[in-house]
Lab assay of single mutants.
Amino acid sequence: HFTSQQLQELEATFQRNRYPDMSTREEIAVWTNLTEARVRVWFKNRRAKWR
Rank of each mutant, 00 (worst) to 15 (best):
R38D: 15
T32R: 01
W31N: 15
P20K: 04
M22K: 15
H1V: 10
R47F: 05
V39E: 00
I28V: 07
T35A: 05
W50T: 08
A37H: 11
R18P: 14
T24H: 07
V39C: 02
Q15C: 09
V41W: 15
T24I: 08
T32I: 14
R40A: 08
R46E: 07
S4N: 11
W50C: 11
Q8L: 12
A37R: 11
R25M: 09
E26V: 13
H1Q: 12
T35R: 02
I28L: 12
R38F: 13
F14T: 03
Q6G: 02
Y19R: 05
E11F: 04
S23C: 12
D21N: 13
R40S: 06
N33Q: 10
T24F: 08
Q8E: 12
F43G: 00
F2L: 13
V39L: 03
I28K: 01
V30D: 10
T13K: 09
T35M: 03
L7C: 10
V41C: 14
E36T: 05
S23Y: 10
L10N: 00
M22V: 08
W31L: 15
R18Y: 06
R51M: 10
L34A: 07
D21I: 04
R51V: 08
T35V: 04
T13Y: 15
A48L: 09
A12W: 12
T24D: 07
S4G: 08
W42D: 00
R47P: 01
W50Y: 07
A37F: 13
S23L: 12
P20Y: 03
E9L: 15
Q5H: 12
V30M: 13
A29W: 04
H1L: 11
E27M: 14
E27V: 10
W31F: 14
A37S: 11
A37Q: 11
F14Y: 06
Q15H: 10
R51D: 08
E26L: 14
K49N: 08
R25S: 01
W50I: 08
R38K: 12
E26W: 10
D21F: 02
K44Y: 11
E26I: 14
A48Q: 10
T32F: 13
T3M: 03
R40Q: 07
P20A: 06
R47M: 05
E27T: 10
L34K: 04
R46T: 04
H1N: 11
I28S: 00
S4E: 13
L10Y: 01
F2W: 06
T3A: 04
R40D: 09
W31T: 14
N45I: 13
N45V: 11
W50V: 08
E27S: 10
R47K: 03
Y19E: 03
H1F: 12
R25A: 03
R46L: 02
F43E: 00
W50D: 13
F14K: 03
P20W: 04
F43Q: 00
Q5G: 09
D21E: 04
Q6D: 00
R25Q: 03
A48N: 08
K44T: 08
Q6Y: 03
A48H: 08
E36S: 05
N33I: 04
S4V: 13
R47D: 02
F2C: 08
R18G: 04
N17K: 04
T13F: 15
I28R: 00
R25V: 09
R47H: 03
E36W: 03
Q6T: 06
W50A: 13
W50F: 10
R25T: 04
L10P: 01
P20E: 02
F14Q: 02
Y19F: 10
P20I: 03
E9R: 15
R18H: 13
R46Y: 03
I28M: 03
T3R: 04
A12T: 09
S23E: 12
H1P: 12
R25Y: 08
F43R: 00
S23W: 08
Q6W: 05
V30C: 12
R51S: 08
N33G: 15
S23I: 11
D21H: 05
R38G: 08
M22S: 08
T32K: 01
E11D: 02
Q8P: 01
Q6M: 06
R51H: 10
W50S: 09
V39Y: 02
E11N: 04
S4R: 14
S4D: 11
E26K: 14
R46C: 03
W42T: 00
E9K: 15
V39S: 00
N17I: 09
T24S: 09
I28G: 00
L34M: 09
Q6F: 15
V39N: 00
M22W: 11
T13H: 15
F2G: 02
E11R: 03
E27Y: 09
L10C: 03
E26F: 10
R38S: 13
F2E: 03
L34Y: 01
A12F: 11
Y19L: 04
V30Q: 14
E9M: 15
Y19V: 05
H1S: 12
T32M: 13
E27K: 13
N33T: 05
R40E: 07
E9V: 15
F2D: 02
Y19S: 05
W50H: 08
R38P: 01
W31I: 15
H1Y: 12
N45T: 09
N45S: 09
V39M: 01
T24P: 02
S23H: 13
F14M: 01
E9Q: 15
E36I: 05
A29D: 03
V30L: 14
Y19D: 04
R25H: 01
T32H: 07
V30W: 09
T13M: 15
K49Q: 12
T3G: 04
Q8D: 10
M22H: 11
T13Q: 15
R25E: 02
Y19C: 13
S4A: 13
R38L: 15
A12M: 10
T24A: 12
N33A: 07
L7N: 07
V41G: 10
D21G: 06
N33F: 06
T24Y: 07
E36F: 05
T3F: 04
D21T: 08
W50K: 06
E9Y: 15
Q15L: 11
A12Y: 11
R47A: 04
R47N: 06
R38T: 14
P20M: 02
M22F: 14
F43T: 00
T35N: 06
A12I: 10
E26S: 10
D21W: 03
R38M: 15
R51W: 10
F14S: 01
W50M: 11
N45K: 13
T32N: 07
R18C: 11
S4K: 13
L10A: 01
S23G: 09
R16L: 11
R46F: 02
L7K: 06
Q15N: 08
R51T: 07
R51P: 06
E27D: 08
D21C: 08
V39I: 08
A37L: 14
V39W: 01
N33K: 09
H1R: 12
V30I: 13
V41T: 12
W31K: 15
E36C: 05
F2N: 02
T3V: 03
F2K: 03
L34D: 02
E27A: 14
Q15T: 08
E11C: 08
A37G: 07
T35L: 04
R40N: 09
Q8S: 10
Q5C: 13
E11M: 04
V30K: 15
L34Q: 07
S23D: 08
S23N: 11
N17R: 03
F2Y: 12
L10I: 02
R18W: 07
P20H: 04
Q15G: 07
K44W: 09
Q5E: 12
